[in-house]
Computed example of a mutant assay.
Amino acid sequence: MTFKALGTALFAALTLLLSLDSAGARTLNIVAFGDSLTAGYQLPPDEAFPARLEMLAKSKGLDVTITNAGVSGDTTADGLARIDWSIPDGTDGVILELGANDALRGLSPEESLKNLETMIVRLKERKIYVLLAGILAPPNMGADYETKFNGMYKLLGEKHGVPVYPFFLDGVTLNTGMQLEDGMHPNGAGTKIMAEKFFPVFETFLKSLPQ
């Protein structure tokens, strides 16, 4: 075989390998399941957190689709009531972001924990991986409530072996330039910062999923 023929054969083999690798790759289907912080309260769809995160992930070369299943006003109890039909078959992973409305309403941390735990168990029973996004209780709820509520995400992560992002609103809280006029929800700039801060944990999560 001449040098030229050998080079042609090697090129053909490399092309075939790349083709097979591409054919074997698949898009990972993620559902962002949460409340108004996920839904994108008062924001255009492309500025909601799931859209921001998907755009960032794709810019990094990750083949992923993120469906927005956020419902404004949802508590953990509301999430539990719709978790089964809101997460379609074929979902690889869920970003579970609930609890903010429980804290704002002063609902029992024990009940919130129980609801989140039930959702995690149900998803794992369906072979769906979970990334838990935590939230912090308002300081005016008192130290005891704050300790119980804020600690439940880490507790659930350790008990069920799921990754936890400690504070979903990191970079937005107390930063008026990142919030809507209500002082609670992120604006478009806020969701961009949230996605950027969330991305390293999300990337690690994606790499843990069966390909």
Score class of each variant (00 low, 15 high):
Ala100Gly: 13
Ala100Glu: 04
Asn101Val: 09
Asn101Leu: 08
Ala103Glu: 00
Ala103Arg: 00
Arg105Tyr: 03
Arg105Pro: 06
Arg105Thr: 06
Gly106Phe: 00
Gly106Lys: 09
Leu107His: 09
Leu107Phe: 09
Leu107Tyr: 07
Leu107Trp: 04
Ser108Met: 07
Ser108Val: 07
Pro109His: 05
Pro109Tyr: 00
Pro109Cys: 05
Glu110Asn: 11
Glu110Lys: 14
Glu110Arg: 14
Glu110Asp: 13
Glu111Arg: 15
Glu111Met: 13
Ser112Gly: 13
Ser112Tyr: 00
Ser112Cys: 08
Leu113Ile: 08
Leu113Lys: 15
Leu113Phe: 02
Leu113Pro: 00
Leu113His: 06
Lys114Asn: 08
Lys114Cys: 02
Lys114Pro: 04
Lys114His: 06
Lys114Asp: 05
Lys114Ala: 13
Lys114Thr: 08
Asn115Tyr: 00
Leu116Phe: 02
Glu117Thr: 15
Glu117Gly: 13
Thr118Ser: 14
Thr118Leu: 13
Thr118Ala: 13
Thr118Cys: 07
Met119Cys: 10
Ile120Asp: 01
Ile120Val: 14
Ile120Trp: 03
Arg122His: 10
Arg122Met: 10
Arg122Ala: 01
Leu123Asn: 03
Lys124Val: 08
Lys124His: 06
Lys124Pro: 04
Lys124Thr: 12
Glu125Gln: 14
Arg126Phe: 02
Arg126Thr: 07
Lys127Val: 05
Lys127Asn: 15
Lys127Met: 07
Lys127Phe: 11
Ile128Phe: 11
Ile128Gln: 08
Tyr129Phe: 09
Tyr129His: 14
Tyr129Ile: 03
Tyr129Trp: 07
Val130Tyr: 05
Leu131Asn: 04
Leu132Arg: 00
Leu132Gln: 02
Leu132Lys: 07
Leu132Tyr: 06
Gly134Glu: 06
Gly134Pro: 09
Gly134Ile: 02
Ile135Trp: 01
Ile135Cys: 01
Ile135Ala: 10
Ile135Lys: 01
Leu136Arg: 15
Ala137Phe: 03
Pro138Ser: 11
Pro138His: 12
Pro138Lys: 07
Pro139Thr: 12
Asn140Ala: 08
Met141Cys: 03
Met141Lys: 15
Met141Ser: 08
Gly142Gln: 01
Gly142Asn: 10
Ala143Ser: 13
Ala143Met: 10
Asp144Pro: 12
Asp144Ser: 13
Tyr145Glu: 04
Tyr145Asn: 06
Glu146Ile: 09
Glu146Gln: 13
Phe149Thr: 00
